[in-house]
Computed example of a mutant assay.
Amino acid sequence: MKHATAYVVLLVAALLAPEAANAQCAMCRAVLESSGDTSVAEGINNGIVYLMAIPYVLVGALIFLVYRKVRS
């Protein structure tokens, strides 16, 4: 159970640090910064983070369901 608590703490810390999740490839950043429109760059960056997070959420939910099924 101690390991589960550590994972929850790490997950909460990662969710509370959005600056650390500033995921954008170097090419995308260069093209968007050269255009000068920061709102478009922020939108692209948010889209990348969203697309990156969905598989982790799905896998986490699957692991949780399997864990709950095994424990019962």
Rank of each mutant, 00 (worst) to 15 (best):
T38H: 07
M52I: 13
R68Q: 10
Q24L: 14
I63Y: 07
C25R: 11
P18S: 05
E42V: 15
G36Q: 01
L32Q: 02
N46W: 04
N46R: 07
Y7L: 09
M27G: 13
V59P: 06
L11C: 13
T5L: 12
A14T: 14
N46K: 12
E19C: 07
A6D: 03
T38C: 01
A26R: 02
I54S: 05
Y50Q: 15
N46D: 09
V40K: 00
V70M: 04
L16F: 11
V49S: 05
L51Y: 06
V70N: 08
K69W: 06
L51A: 12
G47T: 10
V57C: 07
L11D: 07
I48W: 15
L16P: 11
P18H: 05
M27E: 15
L32W: 00
V31Q: 01
L10K: 03
E19W: 12
G47S: 12
K69Y: 07
N45M: 05
E33C: 00
K2F: 02
L11E: 08
S34K: 07
V57R: 05
N22P: 01
N22R: 01
G60E: 01
M52K: 09
A30W: 08
L58Y: 07
V57S: 02
A13V: 11
N22H: 05
A14S: 06
A4N: 01
A41Y: 00
E19D: 08
S72P: 14
R29I: 15
C28M: 09
A21G: 06
H3F: 02
T38N: 00
T38P: 04
V70L: 03
A20H: 13
L16N: 06
A6Y: 13
V8T: 05
A21Y: 11
M1S: 06
Y56F: 14
L58C: 14
C28A: 04
K69G: 08
K69F: 02
S72V: 15
V70Y: 05
R71K: 08
V70T: 15
I54N: 06
V40N: 02
A61S: 09
L51P: 05
L11P: 11
M27R: 14
G60A: 03
M52W: 15
G47W: 07
L16G: 14
S35G: 09
Y67D: 15
S39K: 05
A61H: 08
Y67S: 15
L15G: 06
A23Y: 10
Y67E: 09
G36E: 01
G47M: 12
A53V: 13
V9M: 06
A53I: 09
L10R: 03
V66K: 08
M27P: 15
Y7K: 11
V59A: 11
V8M: 06
P55I: 13
